[in-house]
Nucleic acid binder design. Sequence first.
DNA 1: CGCCTAAATGAAAACGTGTTCACTTTTCCA
DNA 2: TGGAAAAGTGAACACGTTTTCATTTAGGCG
Lengths: 354, 354
Amino acid sequence: MTGKPEGAQQRATAEMVARAAEVSRAAVSRAFNPEAPLKPEKRARILKIAEELSYTPDRAARALVTRRSHLVGVIVPDVCSPWESQEVDALTTALQAEGFATLLFKTRVDSSMDERLLTYMRGFNPDSVIVFAENVRPHMLSRFLDRAVPIYVTYPVERRPAEREDDGRWPGEPDTLFDRIDVDQWEGMEQAVALLAGYGCRRIAYLSGKPVSLGQHARRKTLEALMARRGLPALVVVPGDFSYDKGYAGTLDLFRLEGGADAVFAANDESAFGALDALRYELKLRVPEDVKVIGFDDIAQSHWRSYNLTTVKVDLEARVRALVRLIQRRLKTPDAPAIAETVRTRLVVRGTVG
Amino acid sequence: MTGKPEGAQQRATAEMVARAAEVSRAAVSRAFNPEAPLKPEKRARILKIAEELSYTPDRAARALVTRRSHLVGVIVPDVCSPWESQEVDALTTALQAEGFATLLFKTRVDSSMDERLLTYMRGFNPDSVIVFAENVRPHMLSRFLDRAVPIYVTYPVERRPAEREDDGRWPGEPDTLFDRIDVDQWEGMEQAVALLAGYGCRRIAYLSGKPVSLGQHARRKTLEALMARRGLPALVVVPGDFSYDKGYAGTLDLFRLEGGADAVFAANDESAFGALDALRYELKLRVPEDVKVIGFDDIAQSHWRSYNLTTVKVDLEARVRALVRLIQRRLKTPDAPAIAETVRTRLVVRGTVG
DNA sequence: CGCCTAAATGAAAACGTGTTCACTTTTCCA
DNA sequence: TGGAAAAGTGAACACGTTTTCATTTAGGCG
């Protein structure tokens, strides 16, 4: 008994279908391309025979001549993270519906973007590349990928002030080379700060994510700007790395060594869970009575009864829709000017505030 | 300012490298294949020039002639689920290290396996296919994929009794056509039942997963066999679908309508969280004092303080290692007999028991 | 220095498809 | 019915590789 049993026929080829249908190979090719001119009854006959032989055009061969692989490279630091897996899930579904396939690659968010990974990925000829690693800056990508390949970097920005303060990390405006999806963090965070202020919170702590993440950096800047507007005291910044464990430990440090806070604003939901558990089980504080907690993302776990987290929701569906729309547009008109779409955020109020 | 600026040169081709290095195209090809005969200094020169032109062999073209795409198709029902995302993550890392890329597809676990998806996927010529959808039976796959493509179905089985009782769903032993990774659920569940019995639990409920899942079905069978051995009363089966919400609702039903239980054994960790929250926050019962709870998988969230779940851990790393090992073996010797590797399970004791 | 063997090399043939370009057939209108 | 325009069709080329097969070059030994 072998893994490749006797009947292991090779895949059917267009040539074989052509022979069986007594037409030319070109006709077979045209049968699978709806726009190509071909007499309807002939197309039907060809497709029928193709079905019987279970023939499908070989995408590798097709890619060679059409310059379209229908592959979309997706670079993600950590598929395990609930937020990223949610994003990969939605994206894969959307791409699949449009005739693409997801080519998944992993990088480490704490390493600078691996040059080898980009070269490696390029070998597969993706039609497009989506980078969810927030530490990746476009100028890295431009060195290694063909300009013809549209690249999408999801880069969360603060909306106001329009000028970015810490621009050393985003030099020379190379971002206009790429289409971009921006997450407007202002709106949701404005609502969050308003809510906290309404409850009289003054001393607010920010439980940060990995320092290399541009997104969490923007989050902190936004928070500081919003608090300054309301005349609140300076933000207390607690180092973190997006993980539950760091959220837990950081919160312990905050309350044992740094004098605590009225509210903890976490860079993402997962670390907010860590903060919650530290407050409740280790520090014996009540949430929301003693301390308020707010997260960022609104992952599926946030509505679980044990956490029931108030959080700033990013419109993931809209983000994925925009992404796919931009890819299609770019592939259709490669020379169109680069554009940036913006995705909104809004506060979801649950049990950890009020 | 356009998305495809003036300097948008096409990708370098072997032909261009050959011309620049004043050698033949064949030499360039050989330079990238370490086993191919080529004078060392010449290889070095070619590689240097290739580097300068940032040339990489086109994998689509290469696949056409070598019949190796270096693509591995992975079919997953739901990337969002913590367990599956953990598996995809580990697998992607391992495949990447071996020179493969993950081609990710999504199906719905509650649908019967979509035939269109398989045909669609086949068009990309994956070297191998890994199916994590537990409802997929091999005979579906054999109709749509070439026999030359090794397929891996992860199929959790009960170890003892060796004979499977409900074999209608796994007809005619077609499984020997494919390499297989089996999860031996017996060992870990034996430990779990022993622990529960030690605490005097007699009325045990099983919070099941989706009915179509062969894995959860095997889990129930194993549990029943283990309980029968110890002379425990019959298992109380609560319908579920692996989700938190169903775990929550199912547990409410169990205690309000079915008379409750001493212990709840959930088909996976996520639904165990639902059970826990229902017990604590809605039914006002104490865990583990009033009711014990045990999960299955040991996902990352299980050690979070709010849950701190006792659970049966599946050795994910071993499973992924075995998977990659089997793929390599099959690609090297396509005619080798099909084999099945077994992955162990063991109980991780945390706070929800004892 | 000359022969024989082994290693290195390039020309050319695949691999399976899409597409151009002539060519043939059909359709439509006068 | 004739002719022109339109539509349908097939042969051949291109896409970028790997690999076979002659051929050339280098190497070792007498």
